[in-house]
Design a protein around this nucleic acid. Structure first.
Lengths: 338, 338
DNA sequence: ATGAAAGCGCTAACAG
DNA sequence: CTGTTAGCGCTTTCAT
């Protein structure tokens, strides 16, 4: 009980395999009546194209590589989710590979040629490489689109992190806050993303515009995780002149800050304002004011651009910068009067 | 600048392509010196096996299908993460397909034969099908392992939801609680998982064992999301004789309950005890007592069993039931005295 | 508009 | 232990 082949279809339709191949793929130069006959035969036999054979013959794999610090991070999962919906519709399989750790990244680089051979295109999510590493990435040898960072050679889908950081900070300044703390990324530069420093630059920008000093003592690391937010707030509050407001570079850290504040009996937003980043689904129930990025749309946009590329067309824009908008909730309020 | 083929390697190594094929795949019947020569030639030419050609010729695709309500749910992402680490090491690509919605499920069923042809095996996560749907699933035509539910024909990796539900409830009973609410799943039976009803049965079991009535008024739906927990608690507290403790079938709902309790000025655990399920990473910072399931291990176990199957071996056990353990934190305490 | 035929690059008998 | 020879099932010129 083998799978029927294209020859079986050709025989029962009374045509050649070439014609079957054409008819099934909606290529031109097939008479309507012939096409119908082929389609009927195919249906009758319950025929399906063998993907492996098709791939070998055509040279196209009909699969897209997803290169990302995969599975587990909210951001990546959402992007992938958005991309999947578009790419699946376009008939592409998704092949995933993880680059979260140093090892998995270098293992990816080791297998990059092999990886590149099994895909027609790639979506590169949250990968920050330059120089030699970027050169290695290019040995992929297929069209790619990057998400989260503009890597130069590829079309990119990003947000303006600096601007968003400034806007978050300005919101706090507008509320009358004058000492605004920052809970951000990591000093672990071995794997560094430029995102934290951009958001920090935005914080700096906003302070400067307001004529406020950017005190380095107001900047702590939070590693983008909940307990990073907890520890970060603890550190900030132990300073001589603690901030009355905090900009956290992710909602998870904002959540941690919220927890720590509560633990210390600090009332939010009366005693302390907190603004996060992402608009994670937990932010609404916890009333966290945040900078919203529409991650699903980022994913679908990336997929759409990649698809355009694969169709041989030139995308209208190669550098898409998505909006980030302030969502006001209950975690921010007027600066306390002293 | 084409890719070198096996023939190129054969030529420079001075052997036949068959020998190259054997040598490269570590098959027996190759002289050590020959193998060395081949390996050297391959390295020199920077040769890599063409996966498409290899697949067509061998009939094996070296890819595993991941069938899951993918991306976005904590549970699935963790399972996939665990599975990926094992399967990637075994040289398998992962092909993902989503079944979250009714449509995506039926679209999956429409493409199931085609899907089955591009994989050597499948990991079926959190898919609850029976009867005709199960029969359709079997048309996949490849070995599979199920996670989350024992579907009958396949080896399965599960937890004992009933027992875990009972244990959570017993913990509350042991603390002196006599009215114990339940925030659980959904009545939307079109897509029903048996998991909620099993956990509810466990709740019932524990109450019965303790000689306590299982008041249907104590059971509300929470949809496994945060605001479901919020609304659920609100509903439960509006009853005549509200519960002093709640068992939530997920940590997300427990979190929602915690939020709602706080909103109402109800102190946890003094006035109300809450136990969750999962041991989500947020549960520790929020001090939520929970039933911990080791989701990463579930994923690796599933992958390992599948791998065994694909090697043609019979797995030692076909029904693996993973432990669920009570993690006591700060959200549960003695029942309030009245 | 259709068919014949030559691959795509590898694996797997089979023979030696 | 090694080489020869068929395929695997489809796509794609090139004729007609």
């Amino acid at each position: 009980m083998r799978h029927p082949t294209i020859e079986d279809v050709a025989r029962t339709a009374g045509v050649s395999v070439a014609t079957v191949s054409r008819a099934l793929r909606d290529l031109p130069n097939v008479a309507v009546s012939t096409r119908d006959r082929v389609l009927t035969a195919a249906r009758e036999l319950d025929y399906e194209i063998d993907p492996q054979a098709s791939r070998l013959a055509s040279g196209r794999t009909m699969t897209i590589g997803l290169i990302a610090p995969l599975f587990g991070t909210w951001y990546v999962d959402r992007v992938v989710n958005g991309a999947e919906s578009v790419l699946a519709d376009a008939g592409y399989d998704l092949l995933i590979t993880s680059t979260r750790t140093r090892e998995s990244l270098s293992s990816f680089f080791d297998r990059i040629r092999s990886f590149g051979r099994r895909i027609d295109g790639a979506l590169v999510i949250d990968l920050y490489v330059h120089g030699a590493d970027l050169a290695r990435l290019e040995t992929l040898g297929v069209p790619a689109v990057t998400v989260g960072e503009d890597l130069g050679p590829y079309p990119s889908i990003t947000i303006d992190n600096r601007r968003a950081g400034a806007e978050a900070t300005r919101h706090l300044i507008d509320l009358g806050h004058r000492r605004i703390g920052l809970i951000g990324g990591s000093a672990d530069s071995s794997f560094s993303s430029p995102v934290p420093e951009r958001r920090e630059q935005g914080w700096r920008d906003a302070l400067e515009t307001a004529g406020l000093p950017a005190d380095p003592g107001l900047v702590v690391e939070g590693e983008f995780v909940v307990d990073g937010g907890e520890r970060g707030l603890a550190r900030l509050l132990s300073a001589d002149d603690p901030p009355t407001a905090i900009f956290c570079m992710s909602d998870y850290m904002a959540l941690g800050a919220l927890i720590e504040a509560r633990r210390r009996g600090i009332e939010v937003p009366r005693d302390l304002s907190i603004v996060g980043f992402d608009d994670h689904e937990l932010s609404r129930p916890f009333g966290i004011t945040t900078m919203r990025q529409d991650v699903d749309t980022i994913g679908t946009t990336a997929a759409t651009v990649l698809n355009t590329l694969l169709c041989g067309d030139t995308p209208a824009v190669t550098q898409t910068v998505h909006d980030v908008t302030l969502v006001k909730r209950e975690s921010t309020g007027p600066a306390p009067v002293r």
